[in-house]
């Protein structure tokens, strides 16, 4: 018995922000953003829409895709929870009509969905759960400083969900072995300094934190180098663990942080660039939502076909990273739009 993907669903907020929109308020340009990141536009929450709203819609679509209502666990991977306490997942489960099922959040930033897949696989294969609804949901732009040109153009919002249930190793949708890793010595390179227990409102000297401390800060060079290095090494390990070769892969489904990171990882892996799946132009970096949003975009447009071998790999704040291999199943998919 092994864990298999039974359904997928995604959702984006209705508001689209282009590079030109961003260039009106920041010292940047469409060309600069596109050349360095591959991003052209992104969906951003505004008004009342928040992480949970996106999670509920994506979760509902994934349940419809899986054509089941027998979910006995909900896991939400998010870096932008509604509140510090409690977790988002119990309320999402309640709103989805999944009364009384196990529900909790995991926090592993951009690697969160891959960590979530590994967690769901573990629960299913150990028999603790039969069918897990895994959701990656983010309204992360609420945590990014609109005046910081190094971070504001990069991020977008959205949610993606996957139903993971029991199956056989040779079945379409089978989730393979994982490589997971982390390096906390570099946690300051990509973090939100204030707002947590270390620096709640005031620092240890009683001083109020600078306002930027409540928003994400990033050392782009350190992140870029480590993302390339760790995604490459992790991908190689995952491919080997699953008794495959790079040549046998049909697609690299990499976390959509920067197209140039993905191109460099492909180069390091000797993977043809035509096998690098990407929708970063339309979404930006949606953290935990990026992997399912990419899978849904490619499946819904028939670029992903049942039986294809996918390398899934992600890297993010922590630093943390993870990779696995999946055989893509034949799934019903739905558009990503809000309505």
């Amino acid at each position: 018995m092994t864990a298999v993907i039974r359904g997928i669903g995604v959702c984006v907020p209705p508001n689209i922000v282009t590079n030109d929109d961003i260039s009106k308020t920041l010292d940047t340009s469409d060309l600069w953003i596109r050349e360095r990141t591959g991003i052209e536009r992104r969906y951003m929450v505004d008004g009342e829409i928040s992480t949970m709203d996106l999670a509920i819609k994506a979760g509902l679509r994934a349940i419809e895709s899986a054509q089941t209502n027998k979910i006995d666990m909900v896991i939400v991977a998010t870096t932008s929870p509604e509140r510090l306490c409690p977790a988002v997942a119990p309320e999402v489960a309640d709103k989805l009509g999944l009364k009384g099922v196990a529900a909790y959040d995991i926090t592993s930033a951009c690697a969160g969905f891959v960590y979530g897949m590994a967690t769901a696989k573990g629960f299913v294969e150990s028999g603790i759960a039969d069918t897990v609804l895994l959701i990656g949901a983010e309204a992360f732009t609420k945590f990014v400083n609109k005046d910081d040109r190094t971070t504001w153009p990069i991020f977008g919002d959205g949610a993606g969900a996957m139903v993971i249930g029991k199956g056989e190793p040779d079945e379409l949708g089978a989730i393979g072995q994982f490589d997971l890793g982390a390096d906390g010595s570099l946690s300051d390179a990509l973090c939100t300094h204030a707002g947590g227990a270390r620096q709640r409102v005031k620092d240890s000297l009683g001083q109020h934190a600078q306002s930027q401390a409540y928003y994400l800060s990033m050392n782009g060079r350190v992140v870029y180098e480590n993302a390339v290095s760790q995604m490459t090494q992790s991908s190689l390990k995952a491919v080997r663990q699953n008794d495959l070769t790079i040549e046998e892969l049909d697609w690299m489904i990499g976390h959509q942080a920067n197209i140039r990171i993905l191109q460099t990882v492909a180069y390091e892996l000797d993977l043809p660039e035509c096998k690098v799946a990407s929708n970063i132009a339309d979404h930006g970096n949606t953290l935990t939502a990026s992997i399912p949003l990419l899978l849904n975009d490619y499946a819904h447009s028939n670029q992903l076909k049942p039986g294809q071998k996918l390398l899934i790999t992600a890297f993010g704040a922590g630093f943390s990273w993870g990779s696995t291999v999946v055989t893509w199943p034949d799934l019903r998919t739905y558009p990503k739009e809000w309505n």
Partner: peptide, 15 residues
Amino acid sequence: FDSLSQLDLAQAIHK
């Protein structure tokens, strides 16, 4: 070349 290209060049030379 921009700053990212230089990183990529360093990576390619290392490889």
